[in-house]
Amino acid sequence: MSWIKFALWLSGIYSMYYAAIILWDFFRGGRSPADERSHELSFTEHIEAVQAGPEATAEIYGSSVISSGGVSLKQLFNLAREEAIEFTRPVSF
Rank of each mutant, 00 (worst) to 15 (best):
L10P: 00
D35W: 13
E59S: 07
A49V: 13
I22W: 09
P33G: 07
I66N: 07
G30S: 08
I60V: 10
Y18W: 08
L10E: 10
F43V: 06
A56Y: 05
E36C: 05
K5I: 03
Y61I: 09
T44S: 05
I47P: 01
Y14C: 12
G30C: 12
Y61T: 12
S64H: 04
E48K: 14
Y14T: 11
Q51R: 15
P54H: 07
E48I: 10
A52D: 15
T44C: 00
E55F: 01
H46F: 05
V50Q: 12
S64V: 00
R28V: 01
Q51I: 15
A34E: 13
S68L: 05
F26T: 07
S67W: 09
G29M: 02
L41E: 12
S42P: 00
F43W: 06
Y61A: 09
W24G: 12
Y18T: 01
L23F: 00
E48V: 11
R31E: 00
F43D: 03
G69Q: 00
W3T: 00
A56H: 09
T57F: 11
A20N: 02
H39Q: 13
I4E: 01
K5R: 10
G69H: 05
S38A: 15
I22C: 02
S15Q: 10
L10K: 01
L23E: 00
P54C: 08
A56K: 09
V65T: 14
S68T: 09
W24L: 14
W3E: 05
A19I: 11
G53P: 05
H39V: 07
L10N: 01
A56D: 12
S11N: 13
A19M: 14
I60H: 09
S63H: 15
S38E: 11
I4A: 05
S42Y: 07
F26A: 07
W3Y: 10
S67L: 13
Q51M: 15
I47M: 10
F27R: 05
F6S: 13
G30M: 05
G30A: 06
I21M: 13
H46N: 11
F26I: 04
F27K: 01
E45R: 06
E55C: 03
F6Q: 13
G30K: 06
G70W: 11
I21V: 14
